[in-house]
Amino acid sequence: MSATAILWTGLLVWALTFAANMSLSRIEAKGGVRRSINLLIPILFGIGLLALWEGLTRGLGVPTVILPPPSMIWDQITSSVPILWADFKQTYLKAVLAGYAMGCGAGFVVAILVDRSPFLRAGLLPVGNLVSALPIIGIAPIMVMWFGFDWPSKAAVVVVMTFFPMLVNTLAGLTAAGRMERDLMATYAASYWQTLFSLRLPAAMPFIFNALKINSTLALIGAIVAEFFGTPIVGMGFRISTEVGRMNVDMVWAEIFVAAIAGSLSYGLLALAERAVTFWHPSNRRARA
């Protein structure tokens, strides 16, 4: 196909998917049909976007350094699976998962401990809120100095980044149980731990899952950026910074694709877990037809 033909095909596919979306969103439907339409629309939008991207970049001859077409990125992904897998293992399976588990776990445990003292809670909540807004990622060079080039330093960055959102959200969540329910627990003569496990922790779950979701993004960012400051010759952040230096932009996009898939999958899994755990929450209850 000539460049112009590709350009027009891309534009045509985009216009078609957009028109299809216009009519789809007008359809009045209920139940399963509605849900499948709601799923179909963003998928069509994505396909249209990819077609537009491919058409514009190849049709107008955009230099691949600026924006490679999706087909080229896909070729790069399929031809360098072993490298991508090694980078994924180093960055995600080692640094992100370890740091995420430790950071979230520590934030959770500290919140439970702090919650017993109203004084500490009143002090930690504002401080924690502020610290969550700070550019914590800047500690990456320090952690690389302390823990060396390999994955523990990245995991350490992730631990610090994920700790505060978890702490603040769990603290806020532990106050979420209503006055009445607490009084009910008191009339049952429930102990502190019984109240915690049967009432306050379940009530705090929406907050905790909120923190888990925020942290899943933060963890990936933290691990990748920490690798910019020094790393062994494997890892997603390392690959991105070196391939950018060599102007191999399609490889960078391949890494971003992997990161996006990993990020979206972990987010999706968390959302599923949330729905299973907080099935009682109004936002998850579905009216029975």
Binding site: N21, P42, I137, I224, M236, A259, S264
Partner: peptide, 17 residues
């Protein structure tokens, strides 16, 4: 219907990278 899911999905992508 078409943009909102993508805006939310893009939140899960490490843009800083």
């Amino acid at each position: 219907r078409s943009l909102m899911p993508w805006i939310i999905t893009s939140q899960t992508i490490p843009i800083l990278a």
